[in-house]
């Protein structure tokens, strides 16, 4: 549906280099990268606010590389919302309807419908200066969605919001996507990427380093930067269930891992830091509820000590010091116990 082919853009001293992205209809595509990686530049190039030095942008097979901004059929929601401060919420939302819808009643119905969908019906007569950050973000979304863009471009839509608002907006974005809206979403937050993305591209220094499903990118990082940035070597997709008051995550239908006690949705991801895993020769009696015996598969020197790869039915990465490795006499093929606390696990709802 949306395809960027070898797009290069220069802006001052920074440049995007040969960006290739392919987004299918109905995709939730995440562009993940640190600040200054070039994520927003990609969005602005798709929207037509920046002109590429070379390459092509196709939307539904049509070359829109040099198409006027107004005719691109993409909707961009800016990170700072860019709500027109001198107009009411209703006037902001109606802005793109000028010249497209003549009948006042049709216009009114359309505004009302989108306001209800986004949950801002009661804000329609307010001025932007009276709205909170979350409300402004919703208004920006409504204003863009009313154009019925083929692709919705979101620039850090959840940045600088509190947890409650973030969770609400994530739900809203998921709903929009489930209703068929194709979304390209830029973020620096890997939890956000996991929570929302069907496909993730990691961008750094103006280059796309890896593209794939969340599992591809997080479990098989193809470069040191991606591995470091995603920072999650023990990363698994899980289904959850309740057992005698405990919440259990089941990995690959075979390994059960105790999670912290909060109620979770059925599906999600778990992340476990390699530094939080304790290795021992025998099972230890401690507060750690997750204990497994496995075989040492590999030992890899790392900056902070050694990384030990243990097969417990799934591969677990643990980082320990060289002294601990010598003390425990860890060697490839040995049996070893691993343990970690339920509270060491980070659960991310999918």
């Amino acid at each position: 549906m949306l395809e960027l082919r070898n797009i290069s853009v220069t802006l001052g001293n920074f440049s995007l280099k040969s960006i290739n992205i392919s987004v299918d209809k109905g995709d939730y595509f995440i562009l993940l990268g640190v600040s200054g990686a070039g994520k927003s530049m990609v969005l602005e190039t798709i929207a037509g606010l920046l002109q590429p030095d070379k390459g092509f942008i196709f939307l539904d097979g049509k070359d829109i590389t040099y198409e006027k901004i107004q005719r691109r059929s993409v909707g961009l929601v800016f990170q700072d919302h860019a709500i027109f401060p001198h107009m009411s919420v209703k006037e902001n939302i109606a802005y793109s309807l000028y010249g497209r819808i003549e009948s006042p009643s049709e216009k009114k119905n359309k505004i009302q419908k989108i306001a209800e969908q986004i949950g801002i019906s009661i804000l329609l007569n307010r001025k932007p200066s009276t709205l909170s950050g979350g409300e402004l973000q919703r208004v920006a979304l409504a204003r863009t969605l009313i154009q019925e863009p083929k692709v919705l471009l979101l620039d850090e839509p959840l940045a600088s919001m509190d947890i409650q608002l973030r969770s609400e907006l994530r739900g809203l974005l998921r709903r929009l996507n489930r209703n068929g809206q194709t979304i390209v979403h830029v973020t620096h937050d890997y939890e956000e990427a996991l929570s929302l993305g069907g496909k993730i591209a990691v961008i750094h220094n103006g280059k796309i380093l890896q593209t794939g499903t969340p599992m591809d990118v997080f479990q098989q990082p193809r470069s040191e930067f991606v591995a470091h940035f995603t920072g999650a070597k023990n990363f698994f997709r899980v289904t959850t269930s309740k057992d005698a008051g405990h919440t259990i995550a089941i990995v690959n239908d075979k390994i059960s891992i105790y999670l912290p006690a909060e109620a979770y949705e059925n599906n999600g991801y778990i992340i476990l830091r390699a530094e939080d895993i304790i290795l021992s020769r025998q099972r230890i009696d401690s507060s750690a509820v997750n204990n497994f015996e496995g075989t040492v598969k590999d030992i890899i020197p790392s900056r902070t000590g050694v990384e030990v790869l243990i097969d417990i039915g799934i591969l677990i990465h643990a980082i320990i010091t060289r002294e601990s490795m010598n003390h425990l006499e860890i060697a490839e093929g040995n049996l070893i116990w691993i343990s970690f606390k339920a509270t060491a696990i980070r659960f991310i709802q999918a």
């Binding site: 037509g48 606010l49 107004q70 700072d80 204003r143």
Partner: peptide, 15 residues
Amino acid sequence: VSVRLENAALSLGAS
């Protein structure tokens, strides 16, 4: 006047 506001208006289909 923020250029972003003008860009937002352009991206909303305004001439």
